[in-house]
C-alpha cells in the first residue's frame, strides 16, 4: 500500500473510534435524561425527600450539594492558587520540588473512596467533626486540590516567559509581575479548571458517604444563622448530597418510587454537571476573547 492509502485507512479508523466514543456518550446522556426528566417537576426539585411514602423530592439534597460545593471551593481555590503559583513561579528546580510534583500526581489519581475513608478517619474521627458538611468539604478538598493545583501550575506555565521579562524590565518585582501580569493572562485556563473541578466535586459520592454522611437533620429554612443546629447553613450538621442520595436509594431505598426518584435525581445531577462544563467553556472563551481582543478581529 502506498502512503496515501495508509493515510486514508488511518483516517477512517480514527474517525470510527471517535464516532464510537461519541455514540456511547450520547447514548448514556440521552438514556439518563429521557428516563429521568419525566419525573422532574418543580415539587420534585424543591420538595423534601420522604423515607417511606412515594412522592418525595430532592430539594434538601440539591441544596446540600450546592452548599458543600461552595464550601469546598472556598477552601480549595485559595490553596490551589497558592500552591500552583509557588510551583510555577517560585519553586527552584530540584529533587524536592520534583518530589512534590510527583506526590501531587499520585494524589490526583487516588480513588475517591480512599479519600472518603481517609477523611472519615482524619476529619470525622480524629478532628471530631463527625458526619458534617465541614468534614465533607475537607474531604472534597483533598480530592480536588491536586487537580486544581496542577491546572493552575499548567495555566501559569503556558504564559510566555517574555511576559515576565516585560514586567521585570519595567522595574516590577517578581510578585507584582506574577499577580498583575502572569495570573491575569492565565485566568481563562485557571477559571476553566476551577469550573470543571466544581463539576467533578458536584457529582462525587464515594468521598462523601463517610464524611458528610447519608442523612440530613430536619432543617429549618427560616433560620439562616450558621450556628443554629437546624440551620441549613450550619457547617457542622450532616448532609446527604444528591449523588449520595442516588447511591443510597439504589442500594437501600425502601420508598415505592425509588427507581423514579433515582432517575429524576440522576437527570438533575447530569444537568448540573453539563451546566458546569458549558459554563467553563463559555466563561473561559469569553475571558480569553476579552483579554486578547480576538473579538475585534473576528
Amino acid at each position: 500500500m502506498n502512503p496515501r492509502k495508509w493515510d486514508k485507512v488511518a483516517t477512517t479508523v480514527l474517525y470510527m473510534i471517535s464516532v464510537f466514543i461519541i455514540a456511547v456518550l450520547a447514548f448514556l446522556l440521552l438514556y439518563i435524561l429521557i428516563s429521568g426528566l419525566p419525573h422532574v417537576t418543580w415539587h420534585f426539585i424543591t420538595g423534601r425527600s420522604s423515607s417511606f411514602a412515594a412522592g418525595g423530592g430532592i430539594g434538601i439534597q440539591l441544596f446540600n450539594s450546592l452548599y458543600l460545593l461552595i464550601l469546598s471551593m472556598l477552601i480549595s481555590i485559595p490553596l490551589s492558587l497558592g500552591a500552583g503559583i509557588y510551583l510555577s513561579e517560585y519553586a527552584p528546580k530540584n529533587w524536592l520540588t520534583d518530589l512534590i510534583r510527583n506526590m501531587i500526581e499520585i494524589l490526583s489519581s487516588l480513588p475517591s473512596v480512599v479519600v472518603g475513608l481517609f477523611g472519615f478517619l482524619v476529619f470525622s474521627i480524629n478532628m471530631k467533626l463527625g458526619f458534617s458538611i465541614l468534614s465533607g468539604a475537607l474531604a472534597l478538598t483533598v480530592f480536588n486540590l491536586p487537580l486544581l493545583t496542577r491546572k493552575v501550575e499548567d495555566s501559569l506555565q503556558s504564559v510566555h516567559y517574555t511576559q515576565r521579562e516585560a514586567g521585570y524590565a519595567l522595574g516590577l518585582s517578581r510578585w507584582e509581575t506574577v499577580i498583575h501580569v502572569v495570573v491575569p493572562s492565565a485566568l481563562p485556563g485557571i477559571l476553566t479548571g476551577m469550573i470543571l473541578g466544581a463539576g467533578r466535586v458536584f457529582g462525587e459520592a464515594a468521598a462523601l458517604i463517610y464524611t458528610a454522611g447519608q442523612s440530613s437533620p430536619p432543617l429549618d429554612f427560616t433560620n439562616w444563622n450558621p450556628t443554629y443546629i437546624a440551620s441549613p447553613l450550619n457547617p457542622l450538621r450532616s448532609a446527604e448530597t444528591l449523588a449520595v442520595h442516588i447511591w443510597k436509594i439504589n442500594s437501600e431505598g425502601i420508598i415505592p418510587d425509588a427507581s423514579a426518584v433515582s432517575a429524576g435525581a440522576s437527570a438533575i445531577l447530569i444537568l448540573f454537571v453539563l451546566l458546569f462544563n458549558f459554563a467553563a467553556r463559555y466563561f473561559g472563551n469569553k475571558l480569553y476573547r476579552h483579554l486578547t481582543g480576538a473579538r475585534e478581529r473576528g
Binding site: T162, A166, A169
Partner: peptide, 17 residues
C-alpha cells in the same frame, strides 16, 4: 535601576491588557 534603564525585546511582548 530598571526604571532608568529600560528594555524592548526581540519578540513584541505586550501585556494581555
Amino acid at each position: 535601576m530598571r526604571k532608568h534603564i529600560g528594555m524592548v525585546f526581540q519578540q513584541p511582548n505586550p501585556f494581555a491588557k
